[in-house]
Amino acid sequence: MLEVAKGNGQILRAYGLECNGSSLPAGQVGGDFFEFIPWNERTVFTVIGDVMGKGFQAARLMETIRQILRECIGINPHPLEVVRQLNKLGGYELQKYGSFATLCLLCYDGIARRLTCVNAGHHPPLLLSHGQVKAAECRGVALGLLEDYLGSGIEEFFLAAGDTVVLYTDGVVEACSPGGHRYGLERLKEVVRLQHGVDVDKIKKNILFDLDTFTHGVSQKDDVTLVVLKVTEKAGDKDGD
């Protein structure tokens, strides 16, 4: 397993996956976060989220949510139970400060190549397979807004070598051009569609480059967080996994 954390970026190579993510804050520290959480010899969790607001409080709540997330995975690692429990425990912390958080949790089983997705008010992940892009359909209410988590449940995908998953925060699709037009989901999907056969680091750079081209480098209101996962092989097919 190779895990590298550098600045606002993180890389993971394990479980037959290559994972690469980074978070670019807009102005003061924001509430965007992502993390790869290796769980056991075949399972890794990936989470992306956005805590309401900016500044010290958002950053502190974000750290609290990440810590509680790990505890919830330890109690019961079923992804839906993780989000339900996180909404209870983390939701309580968020409500104390009149806040909420969006979150998308992925659980990847590298042996079965099964990707399980649960969503709490976050943009659903994009899946690129054989040059076709689709958005996951799982939906749910953001953490901290309701006493009990309410959502469409888990969504599962069986992935093949070369399949790619892209997670992002609203700072990507809501970024604006100088003329006030939104970057939008359709443009993101089109850029992702063109990344068939490209490695994860380059995919991430290509998306960020296209975003920068669209916005003409104008500073944006929201953080931009982008995470790319790509299936390279079945976990255990090669030494080092």
Binding site: F100, G121, R139, V141, L145, L150
Partner: peptide
């Protein structure tokens, strides 16, 4: 669309 994604209207219904 942004509000629907977060669950804004589900919260108002609740």
């Amino acid at each position: 669309e942004d509000l629907e994604l977060i669950g804004f209207f589900r919260v108002l219904e609740a």
